[in-house]
Amino acid sequence: METKTQSLNQAILDFIDLCKTKPHADSYLIAVLHKVQQTYGYLSEEHMYEVAQRLQVPTSVVSGVATFYHFFRLQPRGKYAISVCLGTACFVKGADKILDAFRTELGIELGETSSDGLFSLEVSRCLGVCALAPVVTINDTVYSNVTVKQVPQLIDQVRHAEG
């Protein structure tokens, strides 16, 4: 897990410079934050501060936007982010039970990261694959028609891959 924040990488700095050449440069704030989170996994205070400086937007605005949108994380997440979809279709097909199973199995609550830094548990609001409900994503892989019984298997699979 990353503990010390590095300065923003060149790709992001270049993107910010590109945005500044366009009209309404400050409107790209959300896009910049997306790139930061994509690269570093979350938005650290240092990075938000740097974005504010570079994009010439008040820090208060940056933190206001970062805290408003659910998609942005302000804490590092585990190496494997488990996200249980709680959309309507998944709910009707028992997603709440799946979530409980992950809670018990990992011993962590929603939004927490396991002590080994391997797993974090999140919920998502409908991935739009309702016909395959209930669904769970682990990082970018989507698992469909998940059952409570499969939950320990999914976790074991990851642990196994990690050795």
Binding site: L86, G87, T88, A89, F91, R125, C126, G128, V129, C130, A131
Partner: peptide, 8 residues
């Protein structure tokens, strides 16, 4: 911004 849970 299709946000309704259950719509795709």
């Amino acid at each position: 911004d299709e946000g309704d849970p259950g719509a795709f």
